[in-house]
Design a protein around this nucleic acid. Structure first.
Length: 316
DNA sequence: ATCCAGGTATGCA
DNA sequence: TGCATACCTGGA
């Protein structure tokens, strides 16, 4: 297969510089599932009918390149996707880090972390695939959905299938994409959206609370997935997705042991304010950074006979 | 082998 | 309202 021709590298405008770890966290930390990094530090990703490469130049600035035939399209779409019009450092500075040392540490660890503005429907699809899956597996599922059921944008690159296209795929065929029980949710959602033209576009325009409730009418969409779709696919920065990582963080650093997810959402939005979703992204990144080492995970629970023993000496 | 993974819907007290 | 349990299946 012939390698496609790529446009020359161009600087992102306005110029932005980013540490490699922050770029990695932004593209492959779980907001999006269609970016791959290579050993040279070049990231290749896709959204809608766009294909793009990103890299950090020697001077630290972010550069992009696209298949030559898509160059003009990507030049228009990329600033919106990366939300380059937003000063993310300034936004993070408005978070209550001055009175929250843990948040402060998380922001310090990922300076310039940003939220992507992904296509709404595509974000819904990605997170319908995400239930109790690791990020690497979600990426794999999305890749299979694209190559199996999406249109080829340029040679060797397939877009994710649209919801119209998904409505033509049987649940059985969806299961071939390693979806497991999630295939049923996607098939049912595709049927629903086919019967309700405009439903998705209308939902995207609704205020946060109403949009969240509407999304939760879809099969397989609960509060967590609805918040992910709104945060990563609609720019609703007040959305506060509570997953196991955030639960762990709020438990460990905020003393909220045993709180149900809905209450943690309330806490997050009250404590972190109108940009709670941005705070969530920092806390999520930091929790993953610290929790990735296997030995750092909580020990398996002791059997009751031992678990009941008092443990007064924590540092012996 | 056995267990777990960026959840959700359902069935019971 | 609150709390278990099933739902699929590829990897560690």
């Amino acid at each position: 297969m012939d390698a496609i021709a790529w446009s020359g590298w161009e600087a992102i405008n306005p110029r932005m510089s980013l540490a490699p770890a922050v770029l990695a966290e932004t593209l492959a930390g779980g907001q999006a599932f269609r970016w791959r990094g290579d050993a040279a530090g070049v990231w290749t990703g896709q959204w809608a009918d766009c294909v793009t490469r990103l890299r950090i130049a020697p001077d630290g600035s972010l550069e992009w390149s696209a298949p030559a035939i898509l160059r003009d399209r990507v030049a228009v779409a990329l600033p919106h996707y990366l939300a380059t019009d937003v000063d993310w450092v300034a936004l993070a500075d408005t978070l209550p880090w001055r009175s929250d040392t843990h948040l402060a540490a998380a922001i310090r660890a990922f300076p310039g972390l940003r939220l992507l503005r992904q296509p709404f429907g595509e974000t819904l699809l990605g997170f319908l695939c995400s239930a109790t899956k690791q990020i690497a597996q979600i990426q794999q599922i999305c890749a299979l959905l694209a190559t199996g059921h999406g249109r080829e944008t340029v040679a060797g690159f397939h877009a994710l299938p649209t919801w119209d296209e998904l409505a033509l795929v049987s649940e059985k065929n969806l299961r071939q994409c390693q979806l497991g029980f999630r295939a049923r949710h996607i098939a049912a959602t595709a049927r629903f959206l086919k019967q309700h033209p405009g439903w998705l576009a209308e939902t995207e325009q609704l205020p946060y609370i109403a949009a969240r409730s509407r999304l939760m009418e879809l099969p397989g969409v609960g509060g967590k997935i609805a918040d992910c779709v709104l945060l990563f696919g609609a720019g609703r920065l007040e959305a506060f997705p509570v997953d196991v990582w955030i639960s762990r963080t709020l438990e460990r650093h905020y003393g909220l042991d045993g709180w149900p997810p809905a209450q943690l959402v309330q806490f997050g939005q009250a404590h972190f304010g109108p940009l709670a979703g941005l705070a969530q992204q920092y806390l999520f990144a930091d929790e993953r950074r610290l929790g990735r080492r296997p030995q750092a995970r909580p020990p398996t629970p002791l059997p009751p006979s031992q678990a009941c023993q008092p443990n007064m000496s924590t540092n012996s």
